[in-house]
Design a protein around this nucleic acid. Structure first.
Ligand SMILES: [Zn+2]
Ligand SMILES: [Zn+2]
Ligand SMILES: [Zn+2]
Ligand SMILES: [Zn+2]
Lengths: 162, 162
DNA sequence: AGCCGAACTGTTATATTGTTGCAATCCCTC
DNA sequence: GAGGGATTGCAACAATATAACAGTTCGGCT
């Protein structure tokens, strides 16, 4: 078994470039305006695979010399969420970049409690099971949240070696 | 298809009685103290199948004539969660009684955005799919959140008839 | 019964997260 | 270059959750 992204070393600059390029393309196609603030917030979120809180983003914007208040950040986050560029992790009150932006998917998040990195799965098995069980109850689905907290393979190994 | 609980009329007093009796039994067996505050909070939560926020509980306790501050409620909620008597719904910042207290299960919540009622599923299909996908990534699971927002059968029917 | 330590509760203050409302500005279109 | 919608700046506020510490209650023990 190879440790999956993002739980191992990788060329993260590539993740960021890819995410930003995708974002520009997606916004262009849908006629949405990826303004400097929005792009900067997206870039900040993609600093790592660890979700960032709104007020952490706010602090980072202030460090830029950019005057910013909470609504600035929340509005940018709303925009990015609406266009599928970031996801909110409800159990952390934090936001993470979506590696599958543009492709239809139901996020399913593996959250390592040790290194804080988050992996977004897209396998159909889980969403299929959820749809089946909901349908059995006659329930019409709008939105699904699946957040799995635990320990990633890298951190398990690190813990075992100590 | 019959509309499932809690989305149809039912003898809810029975739900409450059952939940409280279960809670007393579970606490007795584990040597935990179901104090008056804790029991009252549990009873308040079971007023309905709609999740209650901590500050709604706080207001209700105050109406009792009980002087209460946020820590009172949060401590009671912590206790009830630790003993599996209530669940926190992360997407609502609210708490709902667990109808399967005492039995090992991974909650999976169907949240009606119209009537606010929440049904907790316990089918194994979803958790099995989650465990399988996590294992495939080498991820060790601590805790799983599945929250499905949408519309319950009763509210779908009501919407169709208008 | 009386004592002790742990658990529980009261109280105040504070931290964290998210929203409302309105004015000013920007950008695209006509 | 005017009109109008989207975006941003800004101030205040609302909602949710926690920290710290003092007082009280409870159950087991002598
Ligand atoms: Zn990366
Ligand atoms: Zn990890
Ligand atoms: Zn009921
Ligand atoms: Zn409903």
């Amino acid at each position: 078994m190879t440790t999956p992204l993002p739980y191992r070393q990788h060329d993260h600059a590539h993740c960021v470039e890819h995410a930003l390029a995708d974002a520009r393309e997606i916004c262009k196609r849908s006629g949405a305006r990826l303004t400097p603030i929005r792009e900067r917030v997206l870039q900040l979120i993609w600093q790592s695979h660890q979700p960032l809180g709104a007020y952490e983003l706010l602090a980072a914007l202030s460090q830029d010399g950019h005057q910013a208040a909470p609504p600035t950040v929340y509005r940018a986050l709303d925009f990015l969420q609406q266009h599928g560029l970031v996801h909110r992790i409800a159990s952390l009150n934090a936001f993470v970049g979506c590696p599958h932006a543009g492709r239809a998917h139901t996020g399913c998040f593996l959250i390592c409690q040790t290194c804080r990195n988050v992996l977004e799965l897209t396998g159909k098995e889980i969403s299929a099971a959820i749809e089946q069980q909901s349908q059995r109850q006659g329930f019409r689905i709008d939105h699904v949240i699946v957040e799995i907290s635990g320990q990633c393979p890298a951190c398990q190994q690190a813990a075992a070696n100590s």
